[in-house]
Amino acid sequence: MKIHQFLDATYLKTAKQAAITEEENLQNVIKLAEEAIAHNYKLIMIRSNYISTVRKMLIAAKSTVLIGTVIDFPNGNSTLEKKLTEAQKAINLAADELDFVINYTAFKEGNVALIKNEVISCVALCLKNNKVAKFIIEVAALSNEEIIVISQLVKQVVLDTYGEENAKHVFVKSSTGFFKTENNKPNGATLESIKLISENAKPLKIKAAGGVRDYGMAIKMISLGVDRIGTSSSKEIINKEQNLNQGY
């Protein structure tokens, strides 16, 4: 398996979150971009203020690695207008894929109309600009029933509004990786949550993010129908595959 083409190599910490300087944080992004180019990952997922730097690196290397960024991250509770403004800025910076944090709080409160409007408007902007839209539903904040319902909701809105031919341009994504859970419960993708998303969101694509840190878990996720894996452990995953291919 060419697992590198499933990997969205991810670094989303701000300098403050990483407790380092802005320059040190930039160097972390550059290091990840160099790794992504070397291993031909599918995508590098970064904050929008680093897009221009990474785009220049990819062009210089003649690399096919894509650039993704996050919108309304990590809480997803901004107005639709703010979401779309942030997304347009990312598009103007030449991001290829936009990972929107859906307003899962509003969804939990029963505001289905707001969620429908977000999906319709965000997908419209992405399709107009030939970009991919991903909707982060934040599984750690949802019950299993809520995961099923929101996955079906996003799917149905996309299919009803844009047709099955555009399903390949829209993902349902599990997690931000930044959600604060109680009692050290997983705050990212689990096999259970990904199974529920896969069963209820396809033919939309699926991205497992948060907590996928090794090759074995990555393979299990792919076996459940995942199309992309967001991880800060891309190097460990690809090194394991290389060792297996070499018989180690």
Rank of each mutant, 00 (worst) to 15 (best):
H4L: 00
F6D: 03
L7S: 00
L7K: 00
Y11L: 04
L12Y: 04
A18C: 05
T21H: 04
N28Q: 07
N28Y: 08
V29L: 02
I30Y: 04
L32N: 10
A33Y: 02
E35S: 09
H39E: 13
N40T: 08
Y41W: 01
L43N: 07
S48G: 04
T53V: 15
R55F: 09
R55H: 13
R55E: 08
S63N: 15
L66D: 09
F73Q: 01
N75D: 09
G76C: 02
G76I: 06
K83Y: 09
A87Y: 15
K89N: 13
A90P: 08
A94D: 15
E97G: 06
K108H: 04
K116E: 05
N117V: 10
E118C: 07
V119R: 10
I120C: 11
C126T: 12
E138L: 00
A140P: 13
A141N: 13
L142I: 12
I147K: 09
I150S: 09
L153H: 09
Q156L: 07
V158E: 07
L159R: 00
T161M: 02
E164Y: 12
E165N: 15
A167H: 12
K168E: 13
V170T: 14
F171I: 06
F178W: 03
K180G: 06
K180L: 04
N183I: 10
K185I: 11
N187K: 11
G188K: 03
E192N: 13
I194S: 15
E199C: 07
N200T: 03
P203I: 00
V212S: 00
D214Q: 08
G216F: 05
K220V: 00
G225T: 04
G225D: 09
G230K: 03
T231N: 12
K235I: 11
Q242H: 15
N243F: 11
